[in-house]
Amino acid sequence: MIEVRDLTKYHFGRPVLENVSFRVKEGTNLGLIGPGGAGKTLLLKIICGLVEPDSGNTFIKGQKVQGLALQELTQLRFDIGLLFQNYALFDYLNVTENIAFPLRQAGKHTNKEILKMVQESLNSVDLPHIGHQYPNELSGGMKKRVGFARAVIPKPPIVLYDDPTAGLDPVTSSKIFLFLKAMKEERGVTSITISHDIEGIRDICDSFVLLNKGKVVFYGSRDEIENTQLSLARQFWHGFSDDELG
């Protein structure tokens, strides 16, 4: 469903991603873990065509993302939802219009249908009464849930989550992970989840990639990462430091 093949990206002459390769099977969730600055967010942006790599390719449903014309890329993005790390809510639109935005762009629904879908979506993220509010009136957790609602409202078969629980309290974090679990189990969504919350993603991801300094240092299933003897992976998975990461 998603394939990343030999991706390399330089930033001011310095490699930030080097020969990154992995696959995500249909209906599964891949956990992308690693220390800050490892290139995880950049990798997500390359996967959905927001950033061009210097070499290598990504494939979504067998279609090569790099080199697509703007119209083809736009069409492909109807199949991908992206939850941004910093929410990326449109600050000049209220919550209802933020969530309605992708539906309005698709142009497949009437205004009445869109408003009904938005309300259902708000109910599903436990925020039924905030449709009239603007992003600057919301807390971090509320923004995250609104961002989540906007990413999934067009029912895309692929959803990319960039650190969905960063900076949130444990209760809101667990709610977010429940949403992610529901997306996978009820809708069969294929996804990649970046997270530093190993406890949270342990149960919702089927496979894991550990990135360090732009390189894949581990790629395998949940069982494999739990039993790996690879020091870096063990260190990150179990949350102890022996100065190998960094």
């Binding site: 927001l50 993005r77 939802g81 941004f84 990326a88 809510l89 449109f90 935005f101």
Partner: peptide, 14 residues
């Protein structure tokens, strides 16, 4: 810088 332009692209808006 707040990724709103990228979010717009992801919502199929140019």
């Amino acid at each position: 810088v707040t990724d709103q332009v990228d979010a717009m692209k992801m919502c199929a808006a140019e």
